[in-house]
């Protein structure tokens, strides 16, 4: 009981702080300096129409490398934690109810479409909303649909690992190429900037974002597959 009172008091204090913050807050009517710089220079310098993509891939490209690394570490830790259940031939002996014919057929119909949508999202990252992270999550959703249809389905861990590491390696190599042939690490102007608004524009951004998409999709997929292959306790 005393604990609950302490929690409530703490939350009350936090709420008062929030209210004070909200009363003092006035929305900006103009872009601040950073935002104005990005808005005015992205189209000429980078050639991408989606400014958020330009920020994530080029202006703040190092942060993205860090983020992808954090995701990779997470996937690796999940795999390590649950690796006990991966002994071959022994996993999942219990009987599962059949998944109906309709769901099986429907998933065979929908999985290619979901993969196609994922590819569309990460290839068009510089023109439309979306990009590597979204596309990777959509690709992983396709894997999830397969898992939901047939939990005993075997996924090749090797294929996932190969896709993951090759795309990560290419990502870093492209970054280093930017160091030699353009302004700096992860500069996108190693390829021509192209015409604003067409698919082959914005230099290396579509390539880099596709690689990020493949990498993120492989990481999420490996998390899902590792989780679903654990033994029933």
């Amino acid at each position: 009981m005393i604990k609950r009172v302490i929690v409530l008091l703490f939350l009350l204090g936090l709420g008062l702080l929030f209210i004070a913050f909200m009363q003092g807050y006035t929305p900006d009517s103009e872009l601040n300096l950073t935002g104005r710089y990005y808005a005015e220079h992205t189209a000429q310098d980078i050639g991408a129409t989606n400014i958020v993509t330009a920020i994530i891939v080029t202006y703040r490209g190092l942060d993205t490398i860090g983020e992808v690394t954090v995701l990779f570490l997470t996937a690796a830790i999940v795999g390590m934690l649950l690796s006990r259940g991966n002994r071959k031939g022994k996993s999942l002996q219990r009987e599962l109810p059949q998944s109906g014919e309709l769901l099986t057929t429907g998933s065979y119909l929908l999985v290619p479409l979901i993969l196609l949508l994922g590819a569309y999202v990460f290839i068009n990252g510089h023109l439309t909303p979306g990009g590597g992270f979204q596309g990777g999550a959509i690709v992983a959703s396709a894997i999830l649909l397969m898992l939901l249809t047939d939990p005993l389905r075997h996924f090749s861990h090797q294929l996932i690992a190969i896709v993951e590491s090759i795309s990560g390696l290419l990502f870093v190599i492209i970054g280093v190429l930017g160091l030699f042939y353009a302004g700096g690490f992860l500069d996108n102007r190693i390829l021509p900037t192209g015409e604003l608004g067409s698919l082959f524009s914005a230099g290396a951004i579509p390539v880099i974002y596709s690689l990020i998409g493949l990498k993120v999709g492989a990481e999420f997929s490996s998390m899902l597959v590792n989780l679903s292959e654990t033994e029933d306790s």
Binding site: L31, N32, G35, A39, V52, I56, T64, A137
Partner: peptide, 19 residues
Amino acid sequence: IIDPVPQALVLTAIVIGLG
């Protein structure tokens, strides 16, 4: 347009949140 910087921050935050 509106400020793109917070959007870029939140985008990474969501992905890390899932991890």
